[in-house]
Computed example of a mutant assay.
Amino acid sequence: MAADPLKILVYSDNARTREKVRSALGKRVHPDLPELSYLDVATAPVVVTTIDEGGIDLAILDGEATPTGGMGLAKQLKDEVATCPPILVLTGRPDDAWLASWSRAEAAVPHPIDPIALGEAVAGLLRAAVD
């Protein structure tokens, strides 16, 4: 029997960014992990409500989203949600990794999205989450 898909929340105000994330990760990020399912979210209030309700295995937040950036949103989620899933932040540039660390995100990948770097980061976070 196949494992239930892992649910990935992808937040960005830009539909193209959300599409790039889904395209980079595909249906399965690694053969050892279950398939992925995606929930696209364009607004911060929906992210907060959805994470608070539970059932999300990983949140990918766009640090360049407006009006609420993913780093501030990551910090808010980590501060306010007791059972917050792992968070990966998409940063504007590699030098912004320190901001992602401040936000308490478990990982950061810079724009433009590199499918290999994103896949490796997501696989690492999901392995830790399902173990």
Rank of each mutant, 00 (worst) to 15 (best):
residue 107 A to Q: 02
residue 89 V to N: 01
residue 37 S to F: 00
residue 70 G to D: 04
residue 82 A to V: 14
residue 20 K to W: 10
residue 13 D to G: 10
residue 22 R to V: 00
residue 55 G to A: 03
residue 58 L to G: 05
residue 62 D to H: 03
residue 119 G to K: 05
residue 45 P to N: 15
residue 123 A to D: 08
residue 18 R to T: 09
residue 108 A to D: 07
residue 4 D to K: 10
residue 84 C to F: 08
residue 26 G to A: 12
residue 38 Y to G: 03
residue 78 K to C: 14
residue 51 I to L: 10
residue 43 T to S: 14
residue 14 N to W: 06
residue 62 D to A: 01
residue 31 P to I: 05
residue 107 A to S: 09
residue 69 G to K: 04
residue 88 L to G: 00
residue 114 D to P: 12
residue 85 P to Q: 00
residue 7 K to G: 11
residue 123 A to H: 02
residue 115 P to E: 15
residue 27 K to D: 08
residue 78 K to T: 11
residue 2 A to F: 07
residue 84 C to T: 15
residue 32 D to E: 04
residue 124 G to A: 04
residue 92 G to F: 03
residue 56 I to Q: 04
residue 116 I to F: 09
residue 81 V to F: 05
residue 40 D to T: 15
residue 32 D to R: 11
residue 91 T to F: 02
residue 40 D to E: 06
residue 20 K to P: 10
residue 88 L to T: 00
residue 96 D to A: 13
residue 81 V to H: 05
residue 36 L to M: 02
residue 98 W to S: 07
residue 27 K to Q: 14
residue 67 P to N: 03
residue 11 Y to P: 02
residue 32 D to V: 11
residue 131 D to R: 13
residue 121 A to L: 08
residue 19 E to V: 13
residue 74 A to K: 11
residue 40 D to Y: 15
residue 109 V to Y: 00
residue 96 D to S: 08
residue 115 P to F: 10
residue 103 S to H: 11
residue 17 T to L: 06
residue 103 S to Y: 07
residue 75 K to L: 15
residue 61 L to K: 09
residue 35 E to M: 13
residue 63 G to R: 02
residue 24 A to F: 14
residue 38 Y to C: 15
residue 61 L to N: 10
residue 121 A to S: 05
residue 80 E to M: 13
residue 50 T to R: 07
residue 93 R to N: 06
residue 27 K to R: 07
